[in-house]
Design a binder for these strands. Sequence first.
DNA 1: TGCCAGGCCGGGT
DNA 2: ACCCGGCATGGC
Length: 214
Amino acid sequence: MSKTKVLLEIYQKMLNSFGQQKWWPGETPFEVIIGAILTQNTNWSNVEKAIRNLRTARKLSPKAIHELDITELSGLIKPSGFFNIKARRLKSFINWLFLKYEGNLSKLFAQDLQTLRNELMAVKGIGPETADSILLYAGNQPTFVVDAYTHRIFSRHGFIPEESSYDEIKSFFEDNLPKDVKLYNEYHALLVKIGKIFCKPKKNCEECPLKDFL
DNA sequence: TGCCAGGCCGGGT
DNA sequence: ACCCGGCATGGC
């Protein structure tokens, strides 16, 4: 059976079991970007608290965060953990956004995908996963997001080598799936859903519903 | 109670 | 080109 067929069958199975995830859980592209940075190695429920703080303080816009004192910013995002480093990361992204795109997300996303991905990753605090999350979920660009669950689920069952790099795993999906934003969106969201339940670092895979395929 | 969370950076090999 | 410690809160 071809890899494409297997990947699509896995997708169907996840979709049948868990339904559409309707990611990203954010109301605006800007809010998606903030969430993408804040959720680095952090539970989403903690990120929600941080975003709620920002919303209540009326600091959920590029301009507001640009003008916000970094100490106040780190105070507001405290529940998301790593708050000092993340305050710096938010600031570095926003500074770059104003420097190059006048604080305007439409201008940011109106350019070639590869160029944009490279530029995003050059911003301090934005690595490959955060860049891809921003591009896919805030910019509706066809780039596949790889995360710890993706790597763990597919390597654990021997589908990809354990030592695969981020870009190797990303290519594995993109080379074998139709280039479709909606598909990439749901696929990643469903893998996170499955991973949270069945694929912890030191825990069972035994009941993973994808066992038959992988 | 320890483990885990939708990573990334910087310094050392 | 890898490897690893640090970063920190909150839920189960």
